[in-house]
């Protein structure tokens, strides 16, 4: 029965949505302390290449590779984050965009390691490893009535979903705490925040690095889900796409990033019947949205209204 419901195409789109949610959060977190970072694509690339190279060349387990990838991205985040503190607003945006471009060009040119613009193939795939692992424990997909490739896609989806839930839990908890209030106060008035005893350097580096970590994690997972990466996956277009997820959904609230990534990943699939024009529609959508609702689709006010409506409904 399960075998008939599970559509691998939908599972795959679901997985892409989850990876994109992670990326959107990687923009949201630095932004919550007032730092507009366009480095997500670059950090994603560092995570992806680190994990891919480690698992291909040193036969490391995928889990270790993914953790190493995310850590490599966050180390780069610290290295870049500290000097970047002197920059704000558009300066930081362009500098991080530039960082992403430099990283991409290095991937293209460091032939011996990265295979240049051709990219890396034969990256161990997460779903297959899980399948083998399960088989090692004496489990066969047929036992729950699904085919092997259905199991592969399903297991990837479940792993990603779990990770996204953990990340959301982490970010929301952090937000509703002393750390979150410090980040938000820096975002609203950094000078006043500093005179309230907040070490803005520390908190800015923390949030910038967390962003790099999430992007690196998403990149490493991306590599092991797709099995093939090239520098083009981490270009300017990716950086802009991720920024748009966050801003479109609403950059003031975390649910905005989730919604933005969900909606905008799904939209091109839904718009397949006009596939030729979908990017034109996408462009127009952005222009109209910013003119009508510059804070993004979701914001604190709208969420409040929805909550009130719901609680009223609940009383009845």
């Amino acid at each position: 029965m399960l075998g008939e419901i599970l559509n691998t195409y939908y599972l795959q789109i679901g997985s892409f949505i989850l990876i994109n949610i992670m990326l959107a959060i990687s923009v949201y977190v630095p932004l919550s302390s007032g730092q507009l970072s366009l480095g997500s694509a670059g950090f994603m690339g560092v995570g992806a290449y680190t994990s891919a190279l480690l698992t291909i060349h040193f036969d490391l387990p995928i889990v270790i590779g993914i953790i190493a990838g995310a850590l490599a991205a966050s180390i780069l985040g610290v290295i870049v984050g500290i000097p970047s503190l002197r920059l704000s607003g558009v300066y930081l945006a362009i500098a991080t965009l530039g960082l992403g471009e430099v990283i991409r060009v290095i991937f293209v040119n460091w032939d011996t390691l990265t295979k240049g613009s051709v990219g890396l193939t034969g990256i161990p795939q997460l779903g297959r490893e899980i399948l083998e692992f399960a088989r090692g424990l004496g489990f066969e997909p047929a036992m729950i009535g699904i085919k092997n490739n259905q199991f592969v896609f399903l297991s990837i989806f479940i792993v990603l979903l779990t990770l996204v839930i953990v990340i959301l839990w982490f970010v929301v908890r952090q937000q509703n705490s002393r750390v979150g209030r410090a980040l938000s106060s820096i975002n609203q008035d950094d000078k006043a925040a500093e005179s309230m005893g907040i070490n803005i350097t520390y908190y800015k580096v923390i949030s910038f690095t967390q962003g790099a970590f999430f992007a690196g994690l998403a990149g490493a997972l991306f590599a092991h889900v797709i099995g093939y990466i090239s520098p083009a996956d981490f270009s300017y277009h990716r950086a802009v796409e991720v920024l748009i997820f966050t801003v479109f959904g609403g950059s003031e609230v975390i649910i905005g990033s989730v919604f933005g990534a969900f909606f905008l990943t799904l939209m091109p699939e839904v718009l397949r019947f006009v596939s030729e024009f979908r990017y034109i529609i996408y462009g127009i959508l952005l222009i109209v949205l910013m003119a009508v609702r510059p804070q993004g689709i979701l914001d604190a006010n709208l969420l409040k209204k929805i909550k009130i409506k719901r609680s009223k409904g609940g009383v009845r």
Partner: peptide, 25 residues
Amino acid sequence: LRGKKGVSHLAPLISTIGVSILLEN
């Protein structure tokens, strides 16, 4: 976007990105 309350510096960045996507395609 000009003079509208609550418009962050992100908004013109995104809407001009929208124009660039439109023109390129």
